[in-house]
Design a binder for these strands. Structure first.
Length: 598
RNA sequence: CGGGGCGUAGCGCAGUCCGGUAGCGCGCUUCGUUCGGGUCGAAGAGGUCGUGGGUUCAAAUCCCUCCGCCCCGACCA
């Protein structure tokens, strides 16, 4: 490609609202353009990289038996009603009506469609196992897109779906993906780790997320450097400190004016935050009923954790089996007779007073029951109780682990201190089991003649997000530095004054030899061309100048190097091919088998 | 959804407080010049000042509405 012919140009300055490095560089280098919040166009040069990433995905998926197909972007809503996700998922699901006023959805994932295909096409265990995948557009109307391509609303995803007759089969396909995903990220030059994760809206049994560690990430990971335990904070376990027990002392009400936060309260009383109980009010949404008549309803949730711990909403939602949690409104809290800032379940009779939403659910963290004589609110402005004891003064409907693991907390596996790190989720794998095939009645006849639901797994990688992570990982102060495996072009040819003819001959030779070359044939100054070359970040650069040509040479430089080497013109094709091979070999060396560990 | 910020030429910005002919840099066009790290000079093109309404003799500027974008939080993969 000649730059003079290319659609899209480089920019000297990034748009003011570009925040993260990958976003700034991809825009400046002419790879992407924003159309709306979380909606981007990929320019021709970016499309080349996208295609290479997709081909790596195809290569690796095919290697574990994947069969590529294409599924629709627009689905009849009835299918999503059958699996209940029409009701369970909120505004993130794109909904519209077609001309006949029929509810339709925009695909945010494809379990429903795969399930529908299964019930049409799979009748026998002889047709299992299978692995299908596609690389296709998703729409997720995220409440807050951010950071360029890291978090968008429209994106391309490679999603694969494993279909098995039994759990052992799922296990096998899950393990295959577990390893294959590492291969994929390694080949793209993105260091990723696998962490245990919440199953979220996908449902199912077991899930891992692949995380690229970076401070711009929005997930918090809990890592044990000692034994290798890693989990998303949403579900990360840790060893709770032993609760401080003791004999229950008499309840005592004391004035604690102006202590609406735990911090204030602990300071006022001169005690540690761990001697207090913190009350958090949330409103939970539940769905109940059958396919025929589903309805959702809300309940006020009264969660209590020790004052030195942070409530983890994912853990709470999982304990409740709620599909949605939001902070409760002040009027909802007051309807219980509780006072925000001074609230506790002590002295409140929820059988008498069901509050605005009816039937309050009290949930306490598992540290609470064993902790004696905590300080908790008295449900009256400016007052707390001393010596509150679970069991004597109040009880809960649910006791569960409800709190965040934090830096320095103790690893549940080995007892070493944990640390936190930020990460971007570049991929995920889910053991869905029969979550969808049950609802869709996607069944097959097994060897024993019994009708059984197909066992599914689903596995995703966001292509654009992966592109962003590659850019985030591989750059310097001058621009992007593409790994050879995903570089839009392999060689960038810069022609200087009076070297255009020689450069064009080299460009033709390389192109004919199958080398992917980008040729800067513009009538621009050397500085402009060099700066653009650095910005675009093609791994190899050939500079064709009058000085070198007089000696029959051109100059070759890797984007990562500062030194240049002179290469005789008649050897350039072979030298470039050797360089490309060397760069590929360097990437492949990094592809190491990872020991499977769940 | 809550809090904050922004919207003036393709990009970056000034002008808004205090109403009176819409500006600067980069980029773009043409001519000349220069030619191995964002040359220099000259002449140009390009703007419904996000939208709609109001106040006023007069609105980019003041008031109201709506829309869009960004950040933090909530939420989410």
């Amino acid at each position: 490609m000649k730059i003079s012919q290319m659609f899209g140009q480089t920019l000297r300055e990034a748009p003011a609202d570009a925040e993260v490095t990958s976003q700034k560089l991809l825009i400046r280098a002419g790879f992407i353009r924003q159309l709306g919040a979380g909606i981007y166009s990929y320019m021709p040069i970016a499309k080349r990289t996208i295609t290479k990433i997709e081909n790596i995905l195809r290569d690796e998926m095919n290697a574990i038996g994947g069969q590529e197909m294409t599924m629709p972007v627009v689905h009849p809503a009835d299918l999503w009603k059958e699996t209940k996700r029409w009701y369970e998922i909120g505004s993130e699901l794109g909904r519209f009506k077609d001309k006949n006023d029929r509810d339709m959805v925009l695909a945010m994932t494809h379990e429903e469609v795969v399930g529908d295909l299964i019930r049409r096409d799979i009748q026998s265990y002889r047709q299992l196992p299978r692995l299908v995948y596609h690389i296709q557009t998703k729409w997720r109307d995220d409440p807050r897109p951010r950071a360029g391509l890291i978090r968008v609303r429209e994106f391309t995803m490679k999603d694969s779906y494993s279909l098995d007759a039994d759990w052992a089969g799922l296990e096998k396909q899950y393990r295959a993906h577990y390893q294959t995903y590492f291969n994929i990220f390694n080949r793209c030059g993105v260091p990723a780790i696998a962490v245990k994760s919440d199953v979220g809206m996908m449902g199912g049994k077991l899930a891992h997320e692949y995380m690229y560690l970076t401070p711009i990430g929005e997930d918090t990971l809990i890592i044990c450097d000692e034994c290798g335990y890693v989990a998303n904070r949403q579900i990360a376990a840790f060893q709770k400190p032993a609760p401080v027990g003791g004999e229950a002392l008499p309840l005592e009400k004391i004035a604690t004016p102006g202590t609406k936060t735990i911090e204030d309260l602990a300071n006022f009383l001169g005690i540690s935050r761990s001697q207090t109980a913190k009350a958090v009010f949330l409103t939970a949404t539940f769905v109940e009923g059958t396919k025929a008549g589903l309805q959702d309803y809300q309940r006020l949730v009264f969660a209590i954790v020790r004052g030195d711990m942070e409530l983890n909403e994912t853990k709470l939602a999982n304990a409740l089996k709620s599909i949605d949690l939001r902070p409760a409104h002040e009027e909802e809290i007051k309807s219980l007779g509780a006072s925000p800032g001074y609230a506790s379940p002590v002295g409140l009779d929820f059988k008498q007073n069901k509050g605005l939403l009816g039937w309050v659910i009290v949930v306490v963290d598992d540290l609470i029951p064993g902790s004696a004589n905590l300080v908790a609110g008295a449900n009256e402005d400016g007052y707390h109780y001393l010596n509150v004891n679970y069991g004597r003064d109040y009880t809960a409907d649910i006791v569960a682990d409800l709190v965040n693991a934090e830096d320095g907390f103790v690893c549940v596996e080995c007892g070493s201190p944990l640390r936190t790190s930020r990460g971007v989720e570049v991929g995920n794998i889910f053991q869905l089991g029969t979550r969808y095939t049950d609802d869709l009645e996607a069944k097959f006849v097994d060897k024993d003649g019994q009708l059984k639901p197909v066992i599914m797994g689903s596995y995703g990688i966001g292509v654009g997000r992966l592109l962003a992570c590659i850019a985030e990982e591989h750059n310097d102060e001058n621009g992007l530095i593409w790994p050879i495996t995903v570089a839009p072009y392999q060689v960038h040819i810069v022609s200087l004054k009076d070297a255009d003819y020689a450069a064009s001959v080299i460009y033709d030779q390389l192109t004919q030899a199958g080398v992917e070359a980008l040729y800067d044939d513009r009538d621009e100054s050397a500085g402009v061309k060099f700066n653009d070359a650095d910005l675009i970040g093609i791994p190899l650069r050939i500079t064709c100048g009058k000085r070198g040509l007089e000696r029959g040479e051109v100059e070759l430089k890797r984007r990562t190097d500062t030194e240049k080497r002179n290469v005789p013109i008649d050897e350039i094709v072979e030298v470039i091919q050797a360089e490309i091979a060397a760069l590929k070999a360097e990437i492949m060396v990094k592809v190491k088998p990872v020991v499977y560990k769940m």
